[in-house]
Nucleic acid binder design. Sequence first.
DNA 1: TGTTATTCGGATATTTAATATCCGATTTAA
DNA 2: TTAAATCGGATATTAAATATCCGAATAACA
Lengths: 170, 170
Amino acid sequence: MMQISKGVEWAAHAAVMMIALPEGRGLKAEALARYHEVPTAYMAKQLQALSKAGIVQSSRGAHGGYRLAKPATDITLWDITAAIEGHAPAFRCTEIRQNGPCGLKKKDCKNPCQIAGAFAVAERAFRDSLKAVTLADLSGQVLRESKPEHLTDVMKWLGAEAVPLSKKLS
Amino acid sequence: MMQISKGVEWAAHAAVMMIALPEGRGLKAEALARYHEVPTAYMAKQLQALSKAGIVQSSRGAHGGYRLAKPATDITLWDITAAIEGHAPAFRCTEIRQNGPCGLKKKDCKNPCQIAGAFAVAERAFRDSLKAVTLADLSGQVLRESKPEHLTDVMKWLGAEAVPLSKKLS
DNA sequence: TGTTATTCGGATATTTAATATCCGATTTAA
DNA sequence: TTAAATCGGATATTAAATATCCGAATAACA
């Protein structure tokens, strides 16, 4: 059904939340899951994927948690999506033009077929659109469009939940 | 993994093949499956989806088969994709901003959230790119880029397999 | 300096969607 | 009228998305 995993939505919201963290502080997976009211272990899995992709830094053990690994201006929605969903193209060309009674020889298939080519163009348009949106952009929109009282609520929650991260980051 | 079903690939290739059908003739599902060397019953399922979407016409019983329901210039790659995959957006916003300790009230969520909005823009770019490619475009590229001997092969196969369709179309 | 509480990370179940198949409904030709 | 042929919807099977668990690692504290 050409669906994007829910993990992408969760990871994106979690990443936006982490923008507001004070320097040197972090949030643990359980807190991010509780804030968004989603299963803890599954949220943790998404954060692991972000960590592998170098989008967030993590520290384990007591006083562990997550924080962004680079400036919010350097993280795009495509980075988040690719970290969770992978970089593989959505359209998988199985080269069926090489099959059957009129199948082409492999050496005549150096260029991608017309259909695969058209999907490649469309997917590039999709990716480029997501690459144009940074976490900083999203954060700015939230700040402009939210009611002040909501922002105070969020900052209050963050102040209570953000913990000083341990030294050893990865 | 944000994957597009293989059925889309098969349906697209089958549709391009049907462009070359002489007036009043058609191809049965089994022939299209054999030509592309894919499972007959599953190819048939994709053709049913195209039929429901009004992209191809079908006739049942002896001398049944499929042919395009409208000019190749009026059928886009997006039409094929939507017929197989459905029209639902790939990114499903579950409104998690309404969840948790700082959840927003439903009445404050009239507009889509920033993340969902960004994905909507990206998906529109994807769709528009596919909408710009018609079956006629694809067919033209194939005609220009294929070796003449391959085209003769295909036309020969088509001449042998294309059958006069029965009157009652749907 | 050991011990314990805490949290991440990878491996493991469960549920849902994609893939593949089968059999009845319908049409035509003989 | 009969029989052969073909589509259409319903049904299995396999893979992926979703959810969960337990061991590895870190730091605070006695």
